[in-house]
Design a protein around this nucleic acid. Structure first.
Lengths: 239, 239
DNA sequence: GCTGACTCGATTGTATACAATATCCACATG
DNA sequence: CATGTGGATATTGTATACAATCGAGTCAGC
């Protein structure tokens, strides 16, 4: 027995086809490669991915359950488009849950969590400062989500992680619906505040910081939507 | 246009087969008709329900995503069994979310919500008082979940409802794993306290009451599990 | 000219056939 | 006698075939 490698990454098996399709589509939607409301045909996807309809259907079933796509019986599936009320609701819930996550992270984070958090924030900062906005928008979005995910992971609560994963999906969809709105405003300071409170094991401070961040950000998004409520179809990259 | 019926119940169509299978299995698992850990074969279920494997597979895919069953590649699916850490985590998160739900319900509930809440509590009380314990255990469990669900619905936040639905699954599974532990202790008073605070639109009071209820109940469940941690297979109705 | 029903095309829903993988038991071997 | 290997069996994973449903375009009727 070679105990040298304490955690070998589980030897990723020749993963199931449906799993591959699921991951691929999920990433594509979260990455914004499909416009909200865009129709997804089974046959087209099957052909594009070179597999049969079966695993595609099963993957889309999961995505529906995840809330990434809407399914209407006999009418196919399309990328989910969130209405304004649901966006408001998302931020209400997220404030509570991210607050809890930050508080728990402050209490339970390990040394490796701390390192991961610092790294995630550094990556986010590296992508944000003043680089071309439109180009790395997707990257920023993903890195932002990754940082928040790290916080939740540091809480060491699998149930919370699972729920936050659901919210993450909605946040990602929202961000793509408000693409015109550029993200990195004063988020850096807020992220840093969360990180600092977590690292110093100040649970209530972390909770406050996280809640404040979500509230601020949510308000900005909602303001943006109120200003231009008819985003509708964001097919191309508008100037 | 016949505006007389404001909300006709959507005329439940000759529902999709996979939907029927999903509802059936979900109800069966939540109702405790399958023992935790029990194996569910596709062919057996297909035969029993008189449909092909396809809709069964798709339903089980959704159930897996819901967290009701575990799936291992090429090894089939079995009813999920929660480990103690996850049970602890569930109550931590539920305290936060049920608290939020109660607070929002206090702020946003309508007259019909109020009626539904009162009715739900009355039903629960009718089933609980001192009736035979083991006989209507399932009914009590379902009614208890229904009351809490009503509170969440009264909050009028679809995102929160969706997340609480996930938690509800876990709570139901936990209740079945701790079947020996009988439920209706002083829960009535706590339920009544939540209801009263909600109806009097006391948001923070409702939050406190809900959190207190979850904390109390969670502690009891955990104590029960600590006393008899090896529940393992609860196949028959033990005496 | 407009409204309504009908038919055709396309797409999804379900069932079944085929392939791949895992589990179990027998058997040979040390 | 224990252990490892081999094959048989059963179950899941994927592909395809068939049925049902939906949408659009068209033509008849008013």
């Amino acid at each position: 027995m070679t105990p040298s490698e304490v955690k070998l990454p589980a030897f990723e098996r020749p993963t199931l086809v449906r799993e591959g399709v699921y991951q691929h589509l999920r990433g594509a939607i979260l990455g914004g490669e499909f416009s909200p409301g865009e129709r997804l045909g089974e046959v087209e996807l099957s052909a594009r991915l070179g597999v049969s309809r079966t695993p595609v259907r099963e993957a889309m079933m999961r995505l529906t359950q995840d809330g990434l796509i809407d399914t209407e019986a006999n009418k196919g599936m399309r990328v989910r488009q969130l209405a304004l009320p649901e966006i408001t609701e998302t931020y209400v819930v997220r404030e509570e849950l991210d607050g809890l996550a930050a508080a728990l992270a402050a209490e339970h984070h390990t040394a490796s969590d701390a390192a991961a958090l610092r790294s995630a924030l550094a990556q986010l900062d590296a992508a944000s400062p003043s680089a071309d906005q439109s180009n790395n928008y997707r990257e920023q979005t993903l890195l932002d989500l990754a940082f928040h995910r790290r916080v939740v992971e540091a809480a060491h609560n699998a149930v919370l992680l699972s729920l936050c994963r659901d919210l993450e999906v909605r946040v990602a969809l929202i961000k793509h619906q408000t693409r015109t709105f550029n993200a990195y405003l004063h988020t850096h300071d807020q992220h840093a505040a969360i990180l600092e409170a977590v690292l110093s094991r100040d649970a209530e401070g972390a909770r406050r910081a996280a809640r404040h961040h979500v509230r601020t950000f949510g308000a900005l998004v909602l303001a943006d939507l109120a200003a231009a409520p008819a985003h509708a179809a964001h097919t191309g990259e508008t100037a």
